[in-house]
Design a protein around this nucleic acid. Structure first.
Lengths: 255, 255
DNA sequence: CATCCATGATAGCGACGCTAACATTAATAT
DNA sequence: ATATTAATGTTAGCGTCGCTATCATGGATG
């Protein structure tokens, strides 16, 4: 199974040096000292080879980044992830274009893993009460904006000469996803609690505040969102978040 | 010179029906009743044919839109232009992918014209003192975000299932480009709706954010606060707060 | 030792982008 | 009206592509 890695590395090398962004399986075979039937026995077809190559390049870059990406501040992690994404695109334009600008490698693991990592960060932000959309929606928003900026810088550098384009888009996206606009003053009770926990080191207050907010909203709700029984039970469940036991348990996951 | 248009229309037809987004010059020749040497005498090479085809499709769509795009409100025109861009991408995914996701048709006139039209609108906004960046910078920002959303919806529909993704990104970009955040029709977007309810006294954004916060906290909760079934049902109920119907209904209760 | 299966090597198929070569027509000049 | 030129139609084919059929080889397994 060493042949597989040999082929992938040769393909990655050729892809990085390719002028038009494409490579031929014949060239890959010649560069890796392997014959075509072997390549097709291993990968099946060219799309699978490209997929494996893109995944390999992506994972190589990711393992470089992963060491420095464990922080207590999910917003800082989000910024780091964005900048890393952009840097990867500029460092590997051909692989990136295959991954985010073509349909040939749409099923590559790299794309879903990028979204998974992003969602992890966003869920931590959500747990602090700082997201105003669901992590799923936020992830789609961030990914679309980030890939749009990266592709524009790769494919239309002369039309994307603003040196702060990526940074601008990053902050624009962050602003529209976070409550209170991110860097600005928090406006919701949950965000206030999130800011307060910055001093105490715990994020459980945001959860308690969110439960309180929801219970209050629930009481004033006359729209047919819940039946009476549902509403009663939901209120009971929301009340469970207010116990100190719950708080300490939730915050146990944090530290 | 009628042969040129005949070829282009055949190519556009084939491109629209193509499964993998690519077409062969042989198929174009057969579909247009013209031989390959004639095609290559007219266009030079395949890239030029694709370029002309994309330009043709783009201009056809643009002439459809141009009639309805003379307004006194540049912000409304910006929104119209954004939605038209997205609609074109979804209606012509293969042509769009060639234009914004590949380097084969990077020099197509369509791309530069799209940016030119956009800059015209942005310059009108700038003349009204509503832009907080230069029209050039704003145009790059808008184009990158719009193409990113469109490509994501084309290439990764299962990862871009938020039906309001384009709208969300549009308002996010507008907010970050205009001075004061930019006000428009307050009924459509969640952000603007949140602004409107700020005056009315209710706080639907806080409710949505609280529900999101609780769902995130719920996901990383391993303490025995809820049983599995309880947690599943609670998550479902919390998810109901995220629908825009719910939001408007909640704020409707107090207006 | 016989069997089987994974790998090596050769050759080739059909389709691709593209072009040389020539035949034919249309347009122009004399 | 004829000769010259330019444009177009037609055939055939080159080199490369993704991919595969075919067979030889060799080492592991019973």
């Amino acid at each position: 199974m060493d042949a597989k890695l040999t082929i992938i590395e040769a393909a990655a090398r050729l892809l990085a040096q390719s002028a038009d962004g494409d490579i031929s399986t014949r060239a890959v075979c010649e560069a890796s000292g392997i014959q075509q039937p072997a390549l097709y026995r291993i990968f099946g077809d060219k799309a699978a080879l490209l997929e494996a190559t893109v995944d390999h390049v992506w994972n190589k870059y990711l393992s470089m980044k992963r060491a420095a990406e464990a922080s207590s501040d999910p917003l800082a992690d989000l910024r780091r992830g964005w900048d890393g994404h952009t840097a990867f695109a500029l460092a590997n334009p051909n692989a990136y274009r295959l991954l985010f600008g073509s349909n040939a490698v749409a099923r590559a693991e790299s794309g879903t893993e990028a979204v998974r990592l992003l969602q992890g960060v966003l869920e931590r932000l959500a747990a602090q009460g700082r997201l105003r959309v669901t992590p799923e929606v936020a992830a789609q928003h961030v990914m679309a904006a980030n890939s749009g900026v990266a592709l524009a810088m790769i494919l239309r550098p002369e039309q994307s000469d603003d040196p702060r384009l990526s940074e601008r888009m990053r902050e624009s996206v962050i602003h529209s996803i976070l409550v209170g606009g991110g860097a600005g003053e928090p406006s919701t009770t949950a965000a206030l609690a999130a800011k307060a926990e910055g001093a105490s080191g715990s994020n459980s207050e945001a959860v308690v505040a969110a439960a309180i907010t929801l219970r209050a909203a629930l009481a004033r709700l006359d729209a047919p969102i819940f039946t009476g029984a549902e509403q009663t039970l939901l209120d009971e469940w929301l009340a469970r978040f207010n116990t100190d036991d719950t708080v300490s348990t939730v915050e146990g996951a944090h530290s």
